[in-house]
Design a protein around this nucleic acid. Structure first.
Lengths: 192, 192, 192, 192
DNA sequence: TATGAATGAGAATTCATTCAT
DNA sequence: GATGAATGAATTCTCATTCAT
């Protein structure tokens, strides 16, 4: 009969939010943002449509929340210090980390790439992709410079293009792509 | 108002069809398949919705028609004989041709890539992409073999990953990408 | 088999538009703008909801269309020259005209008064009411001045307050108000 | 935390009820009954939705409570004895009292007038308005009879129409109306 | 007494598609 | 061949109300 404590409310909210976010990311990534209706999300999450709008102001904002959340996860996973390694080892770790992101966040990538390719509506996604790209180029350039590549920045861009290409093919071709083989092929090209 | 001849009808049909296809590809590629309404297409093409449905059974079929048409164009442009060139020259020509497709058919790519990321609904697009991929790997492998690469197929896949990566970045990053630089960077890596 | 002429289309459009407008004004005035759903309007008009949106961009715009249309009707009815009459006769005609508007456009008034009293959303209604008020004050002042009233503008404002009061009571009290009696009572006060 | 006495509970109940009523009247009068959500009321009152429903069975009943409460206030303010004044003085006091209500209960009026324009749903409001109207006519008629007006009831109705008209204009036109001027103009017409 | 998460019915709006002319 | 009015199902979103604690 006594009202719930703040923590109890928090917990309830957290659980529902999570259910909705998970349902949404699953649907957005498999059938796409536009083909996913809010009703489908609510149904998959096992909650009412109304509740979804208690937690997210709009379908758009739900997307934003997903992007933020996943970006947080990626950031965390990516934030491994490479200080104790020599440049080449560090480069390999960097590449492997990028492949890990591809493997772990397939769904997320499948969701945002379509949005980044069209629709002005989600400009923030393009900005985010560009900032990630830029950051990667910088990080990698430094390592390649230490490894005494002649044009480290250019080389970095080519490596990242390779990584992005493998990602793209992985997402589109799925099992038709000998992913592991290509992945190792690329990595080995840069192992001294 | 003498009755039109068969050829005249044909011509009229062809022109309207063309107008519709052009309007559709322009809209699909800029704002996306799902955000493009049939009304907008008809309006942009300067025809009535009814007429559009005279030519195409559905929005889906309109997409199919666009893919078929553009694939034809790509095929034609791609079908340049490399017989009179040595393997390395041929490889470079092949790569340059692929870049040409990226540059010439931006809109088309921007349209189908999002659709290819979503499983199931447009299966035929994935099949088509896979067949193109496979074909390219084969063509390139042969040349690389002649150039005495140790693992020509693996090397081919890495090159194509690079090409696809540049394509992807070109479509997403636009002017934020030093496209020409990376393009030449990649090509030069394979010039002997 | 031959397509409809421009005039035929016009006619079809006109009829549907009219049906919708009539249904809307009837519902807006009887149960109010907010309690009237677009579905109800379409149903009453005997058309689909979709069609309604072919003619009007939104529920708001439907309201705007009604206001414009009714204002046109009122303007026309009100635009009677009083040149050949002496000031007192003209004043009486003016008052009678105002009563006529009250009687003829009950529904319209019942619709806009609630909107004018609240909601910033429909500012244009307030502007319109003020402009009508101002216009009436000016017209009536001129006549009262000729009739040698000491403070013609003040007197005009009092008369119009009386008219508005009767309008208000007429709309709210309906048959509980001895409308004709009061109306004549007011008019007689200003007959010389 | 000793258990509260009955009186303390009463007080708590009273305060929360009051807060809710005030929030509701403020919102109903500014943005209208239909555009005001129960959530907004609870929020503005600083209580939970649940608590609101502890005090009032429904949004409708909340409205009823407001009307009852405000009517009580008006009654009290209006219940000033005019016995010691002569009829003319009493008439002026009566009119001034009515203006005072207009000025003091703007919000309330702005809230109920829109509702009174819509037939059926809030019948009780129309009944209340009629009863107030009737009562005023009677009171005023008596005074005007003593003042030897020929048709005291008719004159009373005209005066009240004037008052209502000024009220209406005051609510709709706001600062665009020279309220004080008209108010005094009307009062002076009946000062001997 | 007090909370706020949860519901579900219903609101406005969009859009692929049909059809009479 | 060509038109565009008309449809209806589906979409996003709102909100009064309930209920377990």
């Amino acid at each position: 009969m006594s009202p719930r404590t703040h923590t109890q409310w928090e917990e309830i909210r957290g659980k529902s939010r999570e259910k909705i976010l998970n349902a949404a990311i699953s649907l957005f990534s498999s059938i796409g943002y536009f083909s996913t209706s809010v009703s489908k999300i609510a149904q998959k999450a096992g909650v009412s449509k109304g509740l979804l709008y208690n937690y997210f102001d709009s379908k758009d904002q739900l997307l934003v929340a997903i992007v933020k959340k996943t970006l947080g996860l990626i950031e965390k996973a990516f934030d491994i210090s490479t200080d104790e390694h020599n440049p080449n080892e560090a480069l390999i770790i960097l590449m492997e980390n990028m492949f890990k992101i591809i493997e772990t966040h397939q769904g997320f990538l499948r969701m945002i790439i379509p949005l980044s390719m069209q629709i002005r509506e989600f400009e923030f996604i393009n900005k985010m992709i560009f900032s990630k790209y830029d950051e990667s180029v910088k990080k990698m350039s430094i390592l390649l410079e230490k490894m005494e590549y002649k044009n480290p920045e250019d080389e970095a861009r080519i490596i990242i293009a390779g990584l992005d290409g493998i990602m793209y093919q992985y997402l589109v071709l799925g099992d038709n792509l000998p992913y592991e083989k290509i992945k190792n092929g690329l990595i080995n090209k840069y192992k001294i």
